[in-house]
């Protein structure tokens, strides 16, 4: 993932805070925020993840003119054959049709994000490893490191993400 321009905006912070059920006025009320030691509205600690909105190639967002793998007329817009066959048995379902699951997420804050920041983000691959699991078979882990820099080139947030692809659907 490379995001060239991620403008941090107050309305996006407000919507993001609402979605995690956080009514803390530090995310919404400029007058309140100015009276605190923080001094301005800031973004919630996991907000950097919303940079996906500004990644032109982000594969988990439907795009104009491209088939989407979620359901429409059929259970999957891009796996039409598989859908018809696999709806009967569990053997073909990997649980990973959407590219895997999120295993770990870590953020190091050099400072907190605020409206007016214009960030760029560069992601580099990290380690890869495998593990055997009773509930989901062979697990393949992939790490990536993303550095978020502000308009002055200063590093503001470092994110480490680990994704996992499971061999089969996780037993509940």
């Amino acid at each position: 993932m490379a995001v060239e321009r991620f403008p941090v905006e107050a309305s996006h912070i407000l919507m993001f805070a609402r979605s995690i059920g956080d009514s803390n006025p530090i995310y919404a009320d400029q007058a309140h925020a100015e009276a605190t030691e923080v001094g301005s509205i800031i973004a919630p600690p996991t907000f950097a993840q919303a940079s996906a909105q500004f990644d032109p190639d982000y594969f988990l967002r439907p795009k104009d003119g491209q088939k989407w793998f979620g359901s429409g007329a059929t259970a999957s817009g891009t796996l039409i054959k598989e859908t018809a066959e696999s709806s009967k048995g569990d053997d073909k379902k990997s649980g990973s049709s959407a590219g895997g699951l999120h295993a770990e997420q870590h953020f190091t804050y050099h400072r907190h994000l605020k409206p007016g920041d214009v960030l760029s983000a560069e992601t580099k691959p990290g380690e890869s490893w495998e593990k055997e699991s009773k509930r989901a078979g062979v697990l393949k882990f992939n790490e990536s490191i993303t550095e978020y820099r502000d308009q002055d080139g200063e590093l503001v947030v470092t994110a480490r993400s680990v994704g996992v692809v499971t061999e089969k659907v996780i037993e509940q």
């Binding site: 609402r18 996906a52 909105q53 359901s71």
Partner: peptide, 14 residues
């Protein structure tokens, strides 16, 4: 809000 529209989170059929 996050931009992650993976259908496993919202699409019952999928």
């Amino acid at each position: 809000a996050s931009g992650d529209y993976n259908p496993v989170h919202s699409d019952e059929k999928f």
